[in-house]
Computed example of a mutant assay.
Amino acid sequence: MTSESETTEKMTAALRKAGIRVTRQRIALLGVLAEATDHPDAVELHERAKAIEPSVSLATVYRTLSVLEEGGVVHRHAFEGGGARFETTHEEHHDHILDVDTGEVIEFQSDKIEQLQDEIARELGYEVVHHRLELYCRKKT
């Protein structure tokens, strides 16, 4: 797992590489992204960044997220039933469970699932190069 400061440095480098100025507003957004433990959408990120730097605009959030996604340092998730949600790429590979009643996103990692996916791909003559697994669930009552 990468530290928040290393994550922020990677995002800053991605912005500079894309020719985007690293302003106070963007620094606030990068800090919010680096410390997020959930999967916030752009509006949530905007609200959190504005609490740090009131001049952050929603347009800046969208533009910055787009550049960070293109730079491979932020993942955009388009979970069913909602808008895009974001997370940094500093985490090791994981999959997601989405609680269909609360909207909560739970990260999990399963060696069994990873091995089964590799086995299935291999049986069909393929090698897994990337995958994304989302389970839409409801808590048992």
Score class of each variant (00 low, 15 high):
M1Y: 03
M1W: 05
T2K: 14
T2L: 14
S3V: 02
S3F: 07
E4P: 08
E4L: 06
S5F: 08
E6W: 05
T7M: 10
T8D: 02
E9M: 02
K10D: 08
M11V: 08
A14F: 06
L15Y: 04
L15C: 06
K17R: 13
G19N: 11
R21C: 07
R24T: 09
R26T: 10
L30A: 09
G31D: 12
V32C: 07
V32G: 03
V32Y: 02
E35W: 00
E35K: 15
E35D: 10
E35M: 03
E35Y: 02
A36K: 09
D38P: 00
D38Y: 00
P40I: 07
D41V: 04
V43H: 10
E47I: 05
E47Q: 15
E47F: 01
R48M: 09
R48C: 05
R48E: 12
A49K: 04
K50G: 06
K50C: 10
A51P: 01
A51D: 10
A51C: 00
I52C: 01
E53P: 02
S55T: 15
S55W: 03
V56E: 04
S57Q: 15
L58S: 11
L58D: 09
A59H: 15
A59F: 09
T60S: 14
T60W: 09
R63C: 03
R63A: 14
T64K: 09
L65Q: 13
L68V: 11
E69Y: 03
E70W: 00
G72W: 05
V74Y: 03
H75P: 01
H77P: 02
H77S: 06
H77I: 04
H77L: 10
F79D: 01
E80L: 08
E80P: 01
G82A: 08
G82Y: 03
G83D: 08
A84E: 07
A84M: 04
E87P: 01
E87V: 00
T88D: 12
T88M: 08
H90G: 15
E91H: 12
E92D: 11
E92Q: 12
E92H: 11
E92R: 15
H93E: 14
H94T: 10
H96P: 05
I97F: 06
V100D: 00
V100L: 04
V100K: 08
D101N: 12
D101P: 02
D101Y: 00
G103H: 05
V105R: 06
I106F: 05
E107H: 06
E107D: 11
E107I: 05
F108K: 12
S110F: 04
S110P: 05
D111Y: 10
D111E: 14
D111I: 13
D111L: 09
Q115E: 15
Q115T: 12
Q117A: 14
E119Y: 04
I120L: 11
R122I: 02
R122M: 07
R122G: 07
E123L: 11
E123V: 04
Y126L: 15
Y126R: 14
V129P: 02
V129F: 05
V129A: 13
V129I: 15
H130E: 15
H131D: 15
L133P: 02
L133Y: 00
L133H: 03
L135I: 12
Y136I: 01
Y136W: 00
R138H: 01
R138N: 00
K139W: 00
K140V: 08
T141D: 01
